[in-house]
């Protein structure tokens, strides 16, 4: 019993310490992002573009793939129910709103957490265990400025971009089913989509993905920079990074949705 309590206490303390550490990393990142340039210590533009290329452009295929099939699946799943109400045309609105508000940002976030978050942790973790992070530090090059900020910035820019793309592709997936399987007139489908879709829907989704991007980058970098214990440590850190990112994405999605829901945004 005592041991159980000790374990619970230990876990709680570790969790709180990690929350504090991650917050500190966020503060440091923001400092280097906004204050650093004024102190003549900017972040290298090349490394930001390099990260954007890796995180954004090279994730295009998987994001398009996931979004397209999600759109198709929603359309297929909802069509029979709506048909029984004689409202098949509403498939268009349903697909558009559910994708832009919820599914595109969350699914894209999860996919990117798996692809990019894991890569960030594995790379920084390997750098940490092979003394490269320490080397940076002793060369008076701040690791947060050189490693974390480019990844953070690249991801909070690229994830919203990918999400908007996923919105469009997903809606196109629904369109394919609507037009070719449910025999809805193409013009009518598009018209109905835009009748239901508001700027607000898209914007809340994009805002969500912005938060998810920050979460993935911060957790990925934090786990990477705190890796210990060689190759095994890198593996463990990567797993922890992905699992934590997944949980936090779902959690923050719930919180953000609640905020939008109750504040009527």
């Amino acid at each position: 019993m005592k041991k159980l309590l000790e374990n619970i206490g230990g876990t709680v303390i570790t969790t709180f310490r990690q929350i504090i550490d991650v917050s500190r990393l966020l503060v440091e990142t923001v400092y280097w992002l906004f204050v650093g340039p004024f102190k003549k210590k900017p972040v290298k533009r090349d490394s930001i573009f390099e990260q954007m290329l890796f995180m954004g452009v090279k994730s295009l295929i998987i994001v398009v793939f996931v979004a397209l099939f999600t759109g198709i699946v929603i359309a297929m799943q909802t069509a029979p129910q709506l048909a029984s109400l004689g409202a098949v045309i509403y498939v268009a609105g349903l697909v558009a709103v559910s994708l832009t508000r919820e599914l595109a940002p969350v699914l894209t976030g999860l996919v990117i957490a798996g692809r990019v978050g894991a890569a960030i942790t594995a790379e920084l973790g390997t750098m940490k265990v092979t003394e490269q992070v320490e080397a940076l530090e002793t060369m008076a090059l701040n690791p947060v400025r050189f490693l974390v900020v480019p990844r953070f910035l690249a991801l909070i820019i690229m994830l919203p971009c990918l999400t908007i793309l996923a919105d469009a592709v997903g809606i196109f997936g629904g369109y394919l089913i609507g037009v070719f399987n449910l025999n809805i007139n193409s013009g009518l489908y598009i018209d109905t989509t835009f009748r239901f879709l508001t700027t607000k829907d898209v914007m809340t989704g994009v805002l969500k993905s912005f938060v998810f991007g920050a979460v993935i980058a911060l957790i990925g970098c934090y786990q990477g920079l705190n890796t210990r214990g060689g190759a095994e440590g890198v593996g463990k850190a990567t797993t922890t990074s992905i699992v934590t990112s997944f949980i936090l994405i779902i959690l923050s999605d719930c919180v953000l949705t609640a905020i939008f829901f109750f504040s009527d945004i």
Binding site: T130, E131, E134, A135, L136, E137, T138, A140
Partner: peptide
């Protein structure tokens, strides 16, 4: 610390080159 660090160099055990 950074000012001090610019005055010294370190050779790490594994080289610690940036991969």
């Amino acid at each position: 610390l950074d000012a001090l660090r610019k005055k010294f160099g370190i050779l790490f055990q594994s080289g610690a080159l940036f991969d």
